[in-house]
Nucleic acid binder design. Sequence first.
DNA 1: AAGTGGTCTAGACCACCAG
DNA 2: TGGTGGTCTAGACCACTTT
Lengths: 243, 243
Amino acid sequence: MTEAQPLYARVKDHILQNIRSGAWAPGARVPSENELVESFRISRMTANRALRELMVEGFLARVPGVGTFVKEAPARSSLVELRNIADEIEQRGHRYSSRIVAKSEVTANPALAEEFEARALDRLFHILIVHEENGVPVQLEDRYVNAAVAPDFLKQDFVKTTPTAYLLAATPVDELEHTVEAALPTFDQQRLLGIGPLEPCLALHRRSWSRGQVATVATLTYPASRYALYSRHRTNARGTLSQ
Amino acid sequence: MTEAQPLYARVKDHILQNIRSGAWAPGARVPSENELVESFRISRMTANRALRELMVEGFLARVPGVGTFVKEAPARSSLVELRNIADEIEQRGHRYSSRIVAKSEVTANPALAEEFEARALDRLFHILIVHEENGVPVQLEDRYVNAAVAPDFLKQDFVKTTPTAYLLAATPVDELEHTVEAALPTFDQQRLLGIGPLEPCLALHRRSWSRGQVATVATLTYPASRYALYSRHRTNARGTLSQ
DNA sequence: AAGTGGTCTAGACCACCAG
DNA sequence: TGGTGGTCTAGACCACTTT
């Protein structure tokens, strides 16, 4: 079961755990490269890679001649948020319901394996759910889950808990990727969402990472007439840009 | 003037130049680590770092046992950030051009006034631009600008500078609002974007605030076949997600 | 068998910062 | 002066793919 992790990845995990658990608060000093060399019995290059990557990923700040420190949490919150659609709908005072269309364990085809950034994927779960607002379908959720990250996924009762809610609770989300496209619905989508062939849809493709692995890949399809994606947020001091 | 660059950075620059200039097209094979070792007279660790970082940054794909290849740059625009579409396109190594369809000072109708959160709007500028990638229309920009915030807006040469670039430079952006919808194109949009009536489009509606006022309201229309909206970001270390 | 990338080591020199 | 990070080297072993 225990994957043979590279040494630098183990060091990164160790540091991330200490940050996430709160043991190392923002601003706290992190072990130096030489200290990591001693405690993990690794070479300095390996310790350097772990710390450097965590800096690039935004968790650490490094100051030459001084040390490495836990970075302050960024003021800017996620723009495209991970929200539970059931909460969203109920927050509007409407009735949420769902219909589970499919739920199974599947084997990954090459395209899926690439999305999961894995050459050989052991196990993958698939679920297809229609989410409804006041009985009207508003979102089709087509989701694949990495079994290595959430082994108990299929055991959940997705009438009571949405997959998003379960995954949020079960695994830490390190990174999120969203791609939004417009598309006309396939025949199956027309049938499941109860829409016509000429009703354009938003396709929100989302990948989330947990502990360095792709945890889940989901395609959320919204009929344009029933849903729009919205965000509003303050920008940081520099304005925006980020190359 | 010539900064002393680290070796791995010089190797990265060399590869990026070849990609940006088009000398190495997407899918083309990039020199292997050993070849870089020979041609740059560096150690393999240094070559490895250059290639690995370019992979993490999304420019290269590496396949163990096979080689390193130039990645296909997808046509997509940032959801989260305010980015200049001309930069985006040029970063992909493609040619940016634009066509100004309309440019004028207008009086606000009630609906526009409401969008600007203003009871009485003195002056409003309007501009309609088609943005092109390699000569193909990829975005229709329909923008209104609050003259009180950017009085010199209409004086700009929008062939040289996009409205986004000018507004970013001229006014601080305090707050951003995005709404994304899918829609079939209107007749005018079909004509300006050169698409058929059944090609769905993404409509990104954006408002930005500057010093407490709505500075600009824009509707950006993307043909689905040519562009997607994209965002990727890390969640903060403590895994606290919004909502 | 030869070549590829993935990782790791045990050194090294440097600029920088602190006491 | 000793510790820090930033970089670099010249090897090495491995799993993998192609020939």
